[in-house]
Nucleic acid binder design. Structure first.
Ligand SMILES: [Zn+2]
Ligand SMILES: [Zn+2]
Ligand SMILES: [Zn+2]
Ligand SMILES: [Zn+2]
Lengths: 144, 144
DNA sequence: TTCACTATTGAGATTGAGTCTCAAAGAAGT
DNA sequence: ACTTCTTTGAGACTCAATCTCAATAGTGAA
């Protein structure tokens, strides 16, 4: 699989070692499109008999984030969430305060205006956080 | 002072008690326009012989936030920051990754587009987080 | 293959922001 | 001043995340 190679390549490039634990963590993150936290990833690994320690899960995620394979999200609930970044276009997030549903959005005009605003204020943007919190109009949402 | 009255009023309105500790915390937050964390506020109070416990600082800030006197910011460094909200127009933040300078911005068009995007996705926005992280072009900034 | 050199791992300790507990102190209305 | 109910403070506790360090294991060279 393409993503497996990608990991090996980057680790080699950075003089880091390719280990089964790192591969397992990366595979687990690639397995879904959800926005999962470290504990969640750790538990999924244990559930399928893959024993990678909590510390290693955290350490591996840090490597993946630093090398742009994974994106770290802070949705304001006190822990980081992660999503595979390979082949995924930039987007931001809308979160329902009642059912915690997360929806992705991307608006080219907002992205442009951000750049423009930053330039006006004398900044060069490296990254941005843009999250909308509210209530979804979904039937299944407890907010009725 | 106007802000003092505001606190008394709101506490009364919510059947909460007006105490010197709560007043001190509110005064301390009103004293600057900076984006300070709870520990910082706690330390400032101690420095001027005003002994309010850490727990009370946190509890009071929660009340102030719930009642719209104070805004809670999460700038991604693992602790909440606070700013007086009374008479302050809505704005978002740009943060320099090198010198931690925080600059405020407000762009009407972005605000509108956010609303529009949310509507399109079937959400009603309650609040939003919009932060730009980058490097400032300031002489004094360590990034040169 | 084996070796030597390092990096990595795991278990558990530690950190740090924030919350909780509960007995003592104190608002506020009467 | 009295009663009632809330608030306070000190320190215990929580929880995500990081650190420690001895044991383990990639990796490249021989
Ligand atoms: Zn964006
Ligand atoms: Zn996403
Ligand atoms: Zn805004
Ligand atoms: Zn601000």
């Amino acid at each position: 699989m393409n993503e497996t190679k990608k990991l090996r390549e980057i680790l080699h490039q950075k003089n880091l070692r390719y280990t089964p634990q790192r591969q397992e963590v990366w595979d687990e993150i690639c397995a879904t499109k959800e926005h999962r936290d470290a504990e969640d990833i750790y538990n999924s690994l244990r559930k399928r008999q893959t024993n990678v320690s909590r510390a290693t899960v955290y350490r591996t995620i840090d490597i993946l984030v630093k090398n742009n394979l994974v994106r770290r999200l802070d949705l304001g609930d006190g822990r980081s969430r992660f999503e595979n970044k390979i082949g995924i276009a930039h987007h931001d997030h809308i979160v329902c305060l009642d059912c915690r549903k997360i929806v992705e959005f991307m608006n080219e005009k907002i992205e442009e205006l951000q750049e423009q605003v930053a330039k006006e204020m004398g900044f060069e943007i490296v990254r941005h956080v843009h999250q909308l919190f509210g209530r979804c109009l979904d039937e299944k949402c407890p907010n009725k």
